[in-house]
Design a protein around this nucleic acid. Sequence first.
RNA 1: GGAGUAGUACUCAAGAGGCUGAAGAGGCGCCCCUGCUAAGGGUGUAGGUCGGGUUAACUGGCGCGAGGGUUCAAAUCCCUCCUGCUCCGCCA
Length: 457
Amino acid sequence: MLCTPIPLVFFSFKFSFYNHFMIVKKGDNMIDIKLIRENKELVKENIRKKFQEQKLGLVDEIYDLDKEYRETKQKMDEARAEKNRFSDQIGALMREGKKEEAMTIKEKVTEMSSEISTLTSREEELSQMIKEKMMVIPNIIADDVPVGKDDSENVELKRFGEAIVPDYEIPYHADILESFNGLDKEASSRTSGNGFYYLMGDAARLSSAMLAYARDFMIEKGFTYCIPPFMIRSDVVTGVMSFAEMDAMMYKIEGEDLYLIGTSEHSMIGKFKDQIIKKETLPITMTSYSPCFRKEVGAHGIEERGIYRVHQFEKQEMIVICEPEDSEEWYEKMWQFTVELFRSLDIPVRQLECCSGDLADLKYKSCDIEAWSPRQQKFFEVGSCSNLTDAQARRLGIRAKSEKGNYYLHTLNNTVLASTRALIALLENNYQADGSVKIPKVLQPYMGGKEVIIPKK
RNA sequence: GGAGUAGUACUCAAGAGGCUGAAGAGGCGCCCCUGCUAAGGGUGUAGGUCGGGUUAACUGGCGCGAGGGUUCAAAUCCCUCCUGCUCCGCCA
């Protein structure tokens, strides 16, 4: 009992999830169960590619349970159909005033009800078991996603801009900020604890300037600007992310069924929950602003000094909801918008493709945009672009109507600009030998025309 | 937060225990009329979801804000919750 084998960890994790969220509605899967009925091997191969061997057995289990489920459902439906026929007869007889005959049938129906309730509870049991297992079967990933175990095997696809190492030293970003009285973490520890910050003066203004610039940049690209709710209900949370992510990220409001959003993607995609979207409104392209709250329970934790990993930041985001056949094309456009934005701020970036093992279960394909850090002489993450195909739409019921029936749309999301990370990138890449920080041309209008920030000490 | 009131398909809307997959209308298809548009007349048609079936015809279950309950039978009766509206309270 002392040493817990891996499969147990996996299952106990799942149970803790269900304690919080008892209601699992239909459509909570990432993939269509038909795929398991018709092409079990494909689903298994996908799981192998993601190095989640512990889930392989689930596929066969689901296959068998589904078979039994459908057989049971068939029997249950037939029994109910018979019962309905009798009930109709009772109704007809009652109207004609033939009470005795009605009573005879009534007794017959009463006898049937125990059989029906046995079948019903078995059916419910099976469907619940299937749902629980389906819940963790990951979305099918794109064919060209590089196979790898974890983030160490992510693949650099392309660089944009020249990654310069200046001949003077670039200080740690917190030191640059403090040089013009832009950061107070001591006060924020007192008021809020570790992982928060006070940004002040030009630093705060620079942060807002970048967000405003990013907002206008996306509006120019034809996206609709939106300020969404900063809290969402649990049913939206579970639809929008895997529960592994949820556990590590989301803050819950005490005594309410509300969570602080970790990114506006959550409320933006949630906006379309259970909606049948009119084809003529597609693609839906929106750019949203929000503060983002994250527990950061992961392996890295919160750092002591800087603002690289914090519990709160602000973000301009973009989301797209489109026809299934268009999502690959949108994915390419979307990450390129971020590259273009960072290049316009004179920040060198690269595109790093997520390998199969590092890809969250909902995702079909994903890449990070990383900015150059001349101080560390390496790239660091400033944004992430993902195509979730129909996985998120399936969970949330985001559909469109066609002649053949309703179908799930595809959803994508991408960071335009995250305040703290972008600020670090900007400071480091525009830091000059004399300790001042150049303000890129495009940001100057948002900074009251200021061209440079001069250190106070 | 307190009181009242409502929630029916893509939209509006009838309905008050069995005859209701749910009247009617918008919508959508076709036709007629008007120089075009708007409007008008005629006629036809669909409906969500999970199964079975040759991803056919057809067929069964569920389904009237969500979840439970009463009943042989619930859109209709009861309970809980959610949302909208009105009034009061509180506040940027």
